[in-house]
Nucleic acid binder design. Structure first.
Lengths: 195, 195
DNA sequence: AATGTGTGTGCACGCTCGTACACATAGAGG
DNA sequence: CCTCTATGTGTACGAGCGTGCACACACATT
């Protein structure tokens, strides 16, 4: 019985480094970010993690299983950061500015995260079983926004963040940062929508 | 000299069906929508298009070349439809409703287009050379929106459409369609953003 | 009818891939 | 120190891949 499938607490005969499995997951994220899901293979991940090829099938039930764990970790990491930033905002106005900063920084920041997000979305769009990862991520983002805004606004704002981030990343020419500010402000302005 | 590389007008010795190349491109879109870019190969596309394997390298300089043409066609198709819908709106209010309809229909509509869009975004996120496809697509969307709204609003609205579409597609639970209406209305409402 | 030319094809090579399975080995229990 | 067991590894197999290239074949020209 493989170690990772045994109930926690029964530690028996464990020898090598116990976080080899973790290393494989991290290596997988790294390989995906460089080569894409299309270019990711057991062999490349094994090489990146410096583990033998046989360890791949030993620890995971195939690429899907591995990818699921890798993207779960990735989404959790991003989600944690978002939550922390939102929690750091003392009031709604600070939260508004934090959101603007996140959009602008995520765009000009690491290409790596942009790529990984899209790889995940693509998997989720095709395969229902990845959708729980994106659903959880979205749920956490919304919960973080609901510290400062009502639930409905939080959902709209979350969608706006997504769209602005994507479009600014895929745009060929740079845009005025003030546009982001204006868009966020408009979404946060409750107007004559009660009809 | 391959037919497709020859200057238009010089038709010499063309024999078989002249739109074989077109069929391959369509077949590529089809295969990508079913198997993803990751699972697309010359052989699968050839089988789908019912052309011999050798035709792949004959008509295209490799998968990248083929994918670029396939996604260009896909983006153009979607873009055309969007443009037509916007052109059909007589005034700004009708345009507003058209946008709302597009968001709601695209979500509950074909999974195929959702998947293909994400596959394209993923390629564009990783590879600069695909970015001109997405950039052109965005430019056309914005131009269509600018029939009814000012350029700045058009860009914000375009981003909002993106975000709402994605989030509603990747969400696990259904949302009230009225939220879309409210979000669009807020973006279209010019408020106290002049500061 | 013979010839030439450019279009398009069939095939096989070398490669990478995931997976299965025989085997090594570390540590526990005797 | 020996034995047993569960953990982990090395390897080889078959499938699927892109590509290069010799070649078939339709048609224009003579």
């Amino acid at each position: 019985m493989p170690d990772h499938k045994r109930a926690a607490g029964t530690r028996l005969g464990r020898r090598n480094d116990p976080d080899r499995r973790d290393r494989i997951i991290d290596a997988c994220i790294e390989v995906v970010s460089r080569a894409g899901v299309a270019g990711t293979s057991h062999r490349k991940v094994a090489a990146q993690a410096a583990v033998p090829l046989g360890a791949m099938t030993y620890y995971f039930d195939g690429m899907d299983d591995l990818l699921r764990e890798a993207f779960t970790r990735f989404a959790t990491t991003i989600s944690d950061r978002f939550e922390r930033r939102m929690a750091a905002a003392p009031d709604a106005d600070a939260a508004r500015e934090a959101v603007i900063a996140i959009i602008l920084e995520d765009v000009f920041g690491d290409d790596r995260e942009l790529v990984l997000s899209h790889e995940l979305y693509t998997l989720a769009a095709r395969d229902r079983s990845y959708r729980s990862i994106t659903a959880d991520w979205m749920a956490r983002s919304r919960a973080a926004l609901e510290r400062h805004f009502d639930p409905e606004t939080a959902r709209m704002l979350d969608a706006l963040i997504e769209g602005l981030t994507i479009h600014r990343a895929l745009d060929s020419q740079p845009r005025d940062p003030r546009e982001v500010e204006i868009a966020v402000t408009r979404i946060l302005t409750r107007g004559g929508e009660a009809r």
